[in-house]
Design a protein around this nucleic acid. Structure first.
Length: 430
RNA sequence: GAGGCUGUAGCUCAGUUGGUUAGAGCGCCAGGUUGUGGUCCUGGAGGUCGUGGGUUCGAUCCCCACCAGUCUCCCCA
């Protein structure tokens, strides 16, 4: 028998949470997605949908050759001489689309958001899958600190809206593009004497991407880092002012954040302010969302001039875990207005026709397709938590009335066929 | 990519120191109620014991590999 491939999952009508991984049912996915769309609308972000498949080069140049994503986690699709990738993230594709369609010509700074699947060939863990789902915003065309703060405010609004508690917003600045070479040299000369105390990957990163050493979890390396040169010492006056202004704007909104001089990003396109929303309740997969400014991305994916931009991305699977940890009240399944119970062939035909009629009037109506007994039909009505059972047999056909049973109160009465619609409507408020 | 733990019915799990027909609870189906659900009672269906190989007279049980899940590492949202 075939199964979902490693690190992927089916979203079923019912929530799967027993034992293995927690996968909410499809109605809960729609509910969560709807609330994301709703927050985005309030912030004036417009949805953009880009292909799942992108040119390999876009990702390699956009995300960065030295990143783990590009080096070992991409799903590559070959077709003839072409190589495509299942997108591992959406920022580079959105920038590609912005440039391809000259969205800057729409005038204002573009507030774009997306929601959809991404793919990384990592080893699956709780809250981490090979096909996972992200949503995020990209605010493109504005270089001022207000844009950074606006993006963060939107992030906060999404998570506050879901009632997620126990989160921390960490923030840092990686400075201008010209900071990297200078800071890299300083880090290299600082670590040079301790070379033999570094892990193999950290030694490699010293050459390829020294900033990432700040990310290390090795205790010994963290001790070394305590005295390492700080990015802050290398910030230009301009970058420092931008960073301070972002923090001031967040303060205006009452959004608290923790400055973390060791916070860096795994992807190459980040410059300037970076931030991360972290949960206390999620163990090793603690990052709920992360983002920052990426003024250099446009050029690295082939744009002719720099385009200032800031954005973030959030994982939906982790959002679900955080919601569960915060005891979020997930919506109950939709209740049918009526379950129609038929006794006999003639009644079945009547129910079949009447059900379509009631549905056309806007009701959620169910009935049995398997020709089952009355008891089975009633059981099914109960299982689906229908509000009313509309029972029709020979007696009813003869009298032109249906038995309408309120399944909550167990009261039932006879209702003329053409009054069934009004009997299903909730009593109108006086 | 590395390491640990796990894999028995749709779900949660027992079990067999290697021996004939592998169990429970929940769920599902039917009957008790020839036209009435949610409670109750009775019965039933449902399993290549993750897959493949090995050891053995005999493997769900022991060994190996693979697959999947889970946790930690790496890394990341």
């Amino acid at each position: 028998m075939f199964q979902t491939i490693r690190g992927t999952f089916d979203i079923l009508p019912d929530t799967q949470e027993a034992g293995k991984q927690f996968v909410p049912g499809s109605a809960i996915w729609r509910h969560v997605e709807a609330r994301v769309h709703e927050v985005m609308k309030r912030f004036g972000f417009e949805e953009i949908r880009t292909p799942i498949l992108e040119p390999l080069g876009l990702i390699a140049h956009g995300v960065g050759q030295t990143t783990d994503i590009v080096q070992k986690e991409m799903f590559v699709v070959q077709r003839g001489d072409e190589e495509y990738v299942l997108r591992p993230e959406v920022t580079a594709p959105v920038m590609r689309s912005y440039l391809q369609h000259s969205l800057g010509q729409r005038g204002r700074a573009q507030r774009l958001y997306y929601l959809g699947p991404c793919f990384r060939a990592e080893r699956p863990q709780k809250g981490r899958f090979r096909q996972f789902h992200q949503f995020g915003v990209e605010l493109i065309g504005a270089d001022g600190p207000m844009a950074d703060a606006e993006a963060i405010a939107c992030l906060r609004a999404v998570y506050d809206g879901f009632g997620i508690t126990g989160t921390r917003l960490r923030i840092n600045s990686l400075g201008d593009a010209d900071l990297r070479p200078r800071y890299r040299d300083a880090l290299k000369s600082y670590f040079e004497p301790f070379r033999d105390r570094l892990s193999e990957t950290s030694r490699q990163r010293l050459e390829t991407n020294p900033l990432r050493i700040l990310d290390t979890k090795s205790e010994d390396e963290r001790l070394l880092l305590a005295n390492a040169p700080r990015i802050a010492e290398f910030l230009s006056d301009e970058a420092r002012a931008h960073f301070d202004a972002v923090k001031q704007h967040l303060d205006l909104l009452g959004i608290s954040c923790t400055e973390d001089p060791l916070l860096v990003r795994g992807l190459d396109y980040y410059t300037g302010v970076v931030f991360e929303l972290e949960s206390d309740d999620l163990g090793s997969q603690s990052a709920l969302a992360a983002g920052g400014r990426y003024d250099g991305l446009a050029e690295s994916v082939g744009g002719k001039q720099p385009v200032p931009a800031v954005g973030w991305a959030a994982g939906i699977e982790r959002l679900f875990l955080a919601m569960r940890a915060s005891d979020y009240d997930f919506p109950e399944p939709d209740r049918p207005d009526a379950y129609m119970v038929a006794l006999g062939t003639e009644a079945q035909n009547w129910v079949f026709a009447k059900a379509q009629h009631l549905r056309a009037a806007g009701f959620h109506v169910e009935y049995d397709l398997m020709g089952r007994s009355m008891k089975a039909q009633m059981k099914e009505a109960n299982r689906q938590r229908a509000r009313f059972a509309v029972i029709v047999g020979e007696n009813e056909l003869a009298s032109g009335t249906a038995t309408v049973r309120d399944l909550d109160s167990s009261e039932q009465r006879e209702v003329a066929f053409d009054e069934i619609v009004s009997s299903l409507r909730p009593p109108t408020e006086p």
